[in-house]
Nucleic acid binder design. Structure first.
Lengths: 100, 100
DNA sequence: GCTCTTGTCCAAAATTTATTGAACAATTGG
DNA sequence: CCAATTGTTCAATAAATTTTGGACAAGAGC
């Protein structure tokens, strides 16, 4: 739990989660978050989220599909994710991703 | 919101919140958390929680009474605090405070 | 086999957080 | 007033996190 909170307690990662919540089923590809930060740094942040159990990253050709682990999180911390994403989507950083 | 998450994404502070949730109305006095860390460091962590809007600290003679801002947090992030403290109270650090 | 795209890995640098210790305020109670 | 209690402030250190750049892996398509 502290790990999940720490993972989400960062503007960049919260923006990623916020945006992932807008396309739960489809997920996204790492490159779509390049407005937020550099490619290398993105790998770092996504690793943090993955280690905390917040997202899954599955290879898909030369890409990687990133998805929010909604069901798992809701099972572990009921209601928690809903509150988080309700706030996360308000971040201006989320809009910056959508716009591109 | 990121500030709140960052504030709670720390074992020590989460333990403080967990224990405060056990005595919501009465609150606690800083000295009661000295099992967790040093006096100086406690001032630091409590400041973090206060700045994030998680607790209030009111002078009471030579002491300071620390309280969880349950109502305010629930108004800002409905359901959030409940999930947090449900997990926070499980921390062994919370038990270490109770025992003393 | 090449090349392009998409990401990762690694080591270094920059930044932020957390922790410590010594000295200092404020209040209480004798 | 004096001493004890309770915390704070400040500057310094330690440690963890974030960011960067260069080189590299792995698949896709020509």
């Amino acid at each position: 739990m502290p790990a999940v909170l720490a993972a989400l307690g960062d503007e960049t990662r919260l923006a990623i989660v916020g945006h992932l919540s807008l396309c739960e089923d489809v997920g996204m590809v790492c490159g779509q978050f390049l407005d937020l930060t550099s490619k290398t740094n993105l790998t770092y942040h996504l690793a943090k989220l993955r280690e905390a159990g917040v997202i899954t990253v599955t290879p898909e050709g030369t890409r990687r599909r990133v998805k929010l682990r909604c069901a798992d999180l809701d099972a572990r911390f009921p209601g928690f994710l809903d509150t988080i994403i309700a706030e996360a989507v308000k971040s201006p950083l989320v809009a910056s991703i959508s716009a591109s």
